[in-house]
Amino acid sequence: MRKIIAASIAILVFVVLAYFFITSSAPIDYRHGGYYENPINHEQYNQSVPQKYLNGTRQDTGASNAVTAIVVEYRGFDTFGEVTVLFTAATGIALLLEAYRRKMERVVESNFIVRIASIVILPFIVVVGTYIFIHGHLTPGGGFPGGAVIASGFLLMLLVKTRKGLNEKNLTITESFAGMTYALIGLLGLVLAQEFLQNYLPLGIFGTVFSAGIIPLIYIAIGFKVGSELSGILDHLKGVHSE
């Protein structure tokens, strides 16, 4: 009975959603007939918002990746919130699982080959992750994927060292410093320029690593933060004491 109700609701939702999105007359091409209006002083500009992003990325932010420019600069406050969501989740997980951490009694030792191979691979994983978040403004990458790659390296360590966990205190301190750095970069924008998260560094030469103002700095902070947070989450899910 329950399954029939669930199935009929799901099918109804499918039909309505699919019909709506397929037949909707949304102007998918953002280039035609677009304009945007500043809602405060009602100035109008004869291009749409995505066009403004694509045309203005180079002059406004100095980045070559428009998605990065949107994520870190144009809509940077969203990303500040996004980092906080992950931070909140990591905090909640620590709150819930702290009580259950204990020493592992029965462990299966990992294979010799796996142990040695992981030690060889780990530095490369960390280097790749670092590369990804440092080059966020030039390539499709950034702090989140870079941090996730680094955390996957730590996951490898957790899988190999079955007896031990990571050092929670160090992870928390890294996470704290990275988060504070991000918030301070934003607050400095309020002091040195006029607005929160506004760029106050020179844009540099387009297309090089040291360009795009505060974007690489923010992505480095995010990379450290995401890396340590995801590692901490994995460590807590494993549930082993660090000593």
Binding site: P39, I40, E43, K52, F77, F196, L197, Q198
Partner: peptide, 15 residues
């Protein structure tokens, strides 16, 4: 009270 963020006019930046 309005406050624009990141130094861009709304709707380009967040308001």
């Amino acid at each position: 009270v309005y406050e624009q963020l990141s130094g861009f006019y709304p709707p380009v930046g967040i308001l």
